[in-house]
Design a protein around this nucleic acid. Structure first.
Lengths: 334, 334
DNA sequence: CGCTCGACCTGTAACGTTATACACGACGTC
DNA sequence: GACGTCGTGTATAACGTTACAGGTCGAGCG
């Protein structure tokens, strides 16, 4: 392996000078710099990142822990984080937690293996009760969920408000029996609970009753389960004229299920999702959704993490992203 | 920072013994092991991966260079590689190349920064002419495209055969004016060219003419462009009863475009894609596609890379994955 | 009783880089 | 001519881990 020492010898300088050239530090004569660079080229030298990391105490790598990269939402999130990370010269390693609280905590522990300079944790399993476990002496940013006043920085979605706006949108479009589809409730800070809360508030704000029959709970956030659930509900004669889905991915399944049940969208039933994933607008019918401004979230998360790494951040910060309801065919007035 | 030396001191052993415990090496008395482990726990010690990497000359990290993670196909690929990588104790860093040949070459160069033990390159821009550039003294596996007899291992899709089968499927379902939608042709090994070749062969095999009018070329592989193209073609009066799309992502756009043009799928026009992404079966109508067995591909790529890293691999290998046509609603006989 | 052997453990020297402090001319200034 | 200063470059000592080559000690054996 070609080392910095080999370059130094070949170029007739000290290793330190080579290092200075590599790191674009001043105090190197132009002619020397050129000679060193030429030697590097000639010998095809590459710096050994491991050695550099050890010496510098920085790896320039951050971890991004997401439930599953192959879900559209997390794919987009990952893409955005990778992109903004690159702007800060950060590499991004993706850890998949598979939506388990267990693995999310493991990711937190793993990250402390000093492998990363910091960790962005897109948590779905962690709850209020894990607040103390987050108190690590390691740069961490929680992304997405809402852990109130946790000990770490947090970029949250406007889950409650966004959901409320989505449901309000359905009400404005004339829906009166609005179903909601989400995962198990009961957590305190998970998406299902928060967005269900928004659903409740919207109904309340419009003086509409909360009908427990209209709550559809699926145990996994997959289109499969969503489609099955819709078909079954319909077969059982459940009557609704709209469904608010906790995520777009679930909504895709709902659209499919409604098609299977021969229910016309949006004529008979209107559907709205949450996340505003790219594919929404290519669905047939195009899916209305709540856009939580992913790009800003990803950027904020990276920026916060960088600040934390640099040590220029003090008190934990909580950023709540803005949102807007994007109306498409699936909620068009008939 | 707590180091191995601190642990050694506190446990009353040498750093080497701590290292032996950490690495589960033999020749450590049970009582000593327990004491060391306890000390590690007490002091909340974590090994410094950078130091270990430097010393061992391995980073246990591989790079995965894909065009864009936020495309369903690459998301699924990334998920699979991360999963199989984990089985080999490998971390995966994702590099986005943005479909440019330039960046793919950069990824190759970057990877040689000894940051990774190896690289899986899902190349879309590289061509036959770059064959020599691939001749690096670094473990690399090319995934997806087809560079014949290149100097590196290669896990290829059955692009030509798969496409041919897809088009044959359309012909069997009674289609006679089959359009094809793909990116710019002219490369020698890119998806568009290879799959177009399969299209040509299928027509030829069934004694059907190749009508240049039915070739729709889009400059970007996005649903947007695909939808626009379909709408425009239809508006211009182009007559076709099926479209073979170079990828599912493009096919999603085509379905959308056909809906916009008020064309019934599959009654008036049948559509088939390629990749068999998860979402295919939730489209309305559900999208027929060619399944190239991603999981096997991802597994093969990781296995090959590991073998290459271990040095137990000699001659470059070329693996072509199997495929099968998955028929769904979008190609159902009316 | 001396010798070998194996189990357990340790000391030393790297791995390749860079922070720090310092060296050495040359030049300007008083 | 002594002194500071600036620009350029170097020597040394880490960073935290692990490979390697011993070292010790008790048991087993002839």
């Amino acid at each position: 392996m070609v080392t910095i020492r080999d370059i130094a010898k070949a170029a007739g300088v000290s290793p330190m000078t080579v290092s200075n050239v590599l790191n674009k530090r001043p105090h190197v004569r132009e002619s020397t710099r050129a000679r060193v660079l030429q030697t590097i080229e000639d010998l095809d030298y590459r710096v050994n990142v491991a050695a550099r990391n050890l010496r510098r105490g920085r790896t320039h790598t951050i971890g991004l822990a997401v439930p599953e990269v192959d879900r559209p939402y997390y794919g987009q999130l990952a893409a955005a984080v990778i992109q903004y990370g690159a702007q800060h010269d950060l590499h991004v390693v993706i850890e998949q937690t598979g939506r388990s609280r267990e693995n999310e905590l493991t990711a937190l522990a793993l990250s402390r293996l000093r492998m990363y300079d910091g960790l962005i944790l897109s948590a779905v399993g962690l709850g209020e009760s894990d607040r103390e476990r987050l108190r690590v002496d390691f740069p961490v940013v929680i992304l997405g969920e809402r852990i109130f006043k946790g000990p770490v920085d947090h970029v949250a979605m406007a889950n409650v408000d966004g959901a409320q706006a989505a449901v309000a949108h359905l009400i404005e479009r004339g829906c009166r029996r609005i179903a909601v589809m989400h995962g198990p409730l009961g957590g305190d800070t998970d998406v299902s609970t928060l967005r269900h809360e928004g659903y409740r508030r919207a109904l309340a704000a419009h003086g509409m009753p909360l009908d427990p029959e209209l709550t559809m709970t699926i145990d996994e956030f997959t289109p499969e389960k969503a489609a099955e659930m819709v078909v079954r509900s319909r077969a059982e004669g459940l009557d609704f004229d709209a469904i608010f889905c906790v995520t777009d991915y679930v909504a895709f399944g709902v659209l499919r299920g409604l098609a299977d049940a021969k229910v016309a969208v949006p004529r008979e039933v209107k559907v709205i999702g949450f996340d505003d994933v790219d594919l929404c607008r290519f669905m047939v019918p195009a899916l209305s959704s709540v856009n939580p401004d992913h790009d800003t979230m990803a950027r904020a998360a990276v920026d916060l993490l960088v600040a934390r790494i640099e040590g220029t951040q003090d008190e934990p910060v909580e950023i709540v992203s803005s949102f807007r309801v994007v109306a498409r065919e699936s909620t068009a007035s008939s």
